[in-house]
C-alpha cells in the first residue's frame, strides 16, 4: 500500500461553541455532521473532534469536495476511531484505507489522518 497523503487539523473548541450558540448553529451541525452523529445533547468537544477529523481527512486526500455529512466516525473493538463512509463518499473511499487519531487537550482538539491506497486486486500477469 502506498501513502496517498497525511492530514492534520487543530480546532479550538471555543470557536465551535461560538458558532453553535448563533442562530445558525443547528444549520452548521447539519452541514458538518453525519445524520447518525446528530443527537440532542451534542457537546462542543464532540463537534470539534468531528470537524478536526473530517478536515484532516480532506487534507490527507487533497480533495476539497468531500461532503462531511457523508462521513461519520465510529470506534473499532480496540477503541480506535475509524471513518465510515456513506452515500457519495462510499465509492470514492473504497480505493483507500484510512487511519485516524484524535486527541483533546484543554481548549483544543487535534486529529491526524493517514490515507493509503489499496493495491489493485488484479493478479500480476506472468
Amino acid at each position: 500500500m502506498n501513502i496517498v497523503g497525511i492530514g492534520i487539523d487543530i480546532c479550538k473548541v471555543s470557536r465551535i461553541a461560538s458558532i453553535l450558540e448563533k442562530p445558525y448553529g443547528k444549520r452548521f451541525i447539519s452541514r458538518v455532521l453525519h445524520p447518525c452523529e446528530i443527537k440532542n445533547d451534542l457537546d462542543y468537544d464532540f463537534v470539534a473532534s468531528r470537524w478536526a477529523a473530517k478536515e484532516a481527512l480532506v487534507k490527507a486526500l487533497g480533495y476539497r469536495l468531500l461532503p462531511f455529512t457523508h462521513v461519520r466516525i465510529n470506534y473499532n473493538t480496540l477503541g480506535q476511531p475509524i471513518f465510515l463512509f456513506t452515500d457519495t463518499t462510499e465509492k470514492l473511499m473504497s480505493k483507500y484505507n484510512t487511519f485516524l487519531s484524535i486527541s483533546h487537550e484543554d481548549q483544543y482538539t487535534v486529529a491526524v489522518v493517514i490515507c493509503l491506497s489499496i493495491p489493485s486486486q488484479t493478479p500480476p500477469s506472468i
Partner: peptide
Amino acid sequence: LDSVEAIVAMEEILGIELSDE
C-alpha cells in the same frame, strides 16, 4: 471553519438552503 460558518450564515440570513454539493 470560518468559510463553512459564513455559508451557513448566508443560508440563514438569505433564507436559502444549499445542497452540500
